[in-house]
Computed example of a mutant assay.
Amino acid sequence: MTLIAEDLLLLLLDDEKGTVAASSYLQAALGGALLVELALAGSVEVEEKRGFWHSAKVRTTAAAAPQEPVLAAALATVAEKERGAQDLVGRLGKGVKDDLFASLERRGMVEQRRDKVLGLFPRTTWPAVDSTHEDAVRRALTAALVSGAEPDERTRALVALLDALGRAHRTVEHQGMSAGEVRRRAKALADGDWAAKAVKDAIAASTAAMTAAVAAGAAAAGSS
C-alpha cells in the first residue's frame, strides 16, 4: 500500500514533465500527509488547541512503530521532543520529497531523470512510468467528489489535504459539476464527523499549516 504522502505527490506531479505543482508549499503538504498517516496508524496523538496563543502539541503513543522507513523516520522526529503541530509539519516535510519519489521509483511508478537547464544548472525530474495506481486514486476521488460515493478513511484524509491546498477541484474531472460545487463537496467531506479524534486533530493541525504555507506563497508571488 502506498502512503497518503505518496498518493498526494503523484496527484501533484506533472506526469510528462516530472515536476511538481505547488512546489512553494510542497514541504508543508507532505509533512501534513505524514502526520495524518501516523495518526491513522495510532502512532501519534495531537493535543487539542486551547487558544490562539497555544499551539496544539503532538506526542507519540504506545503503538508499535511503523515498518515503512519514511514513516518510521517521521515518528522518530515526533519522538525527539514535544513540538507544536504546525512546526512539526514543516519538519516532517523537510527533504522527504526525494525519499518518497525514490519509493515510488522502486514500485515502478516514476523514474528519475537528471539533466541541466540551459546546459548549466543541474535538475532532477520524476516523470511517470506507470500511472495505474494514480488513476485508481483519481477514480476514488472522483467517486467521492463528483459521484457522491462514500469514501473510505484514507480517501477522506486525502480530500482534506487537497482541500487545504485548494486543489481538490483540479484533481478530478467535474463531469458537469462546477468547480465551486466540487470545492464545496470537498470541504463537506473534510469537515464531516468521520474520523477518530486523533485523526481529526492531526488533519486540523496539518491543514492549518498547509493553509498558512499556501497564503505565504501567494503573498510572496504577489509581491514579486
Rank of each mutant, 00 (worst) to 15 (best):
D99C: 04
P66L: 05
V129K: 00
G192W: 04
H169C: 09
S24P: 01
K97C: 12
A65L: 06
D193M: 05
V20P: 05
H133A: 10
A73V: 12
A216H: 06
K81D: 15
H174A: 12
E181N: 08
L26E: 14
L26I: 10
Q67G: 11
L100N: 06
G119R: 09
P122Y: 06
A136P: 02
A74C: 11
A22E: 04
L35H: 09
G93N: 05
S103V: 08
R183I: 00
D14F: 05
T142E: 13
A144L: 02
A164I: 01
D15M: 11
E82Q: 14
R139Y: 06
V182Q: 03
G31H: 06
M1W: 10
G192H: 11
A216R: 13
A221R: 13
Q112P: 08
G192D: 12
K17W: 03
E134M: 13
M210I: 15
K57F: 08
L161N: 12
S23R: 15
V137N: 03
D99V: 00
L165C: 11
T125M: 02
G51T: 01
Q175C: 11
V146F: 00
V129N: 01
A216W: 04
S224Y: 10
L161V: 04
E153Q: 15
T124R: 15
K57C: 01
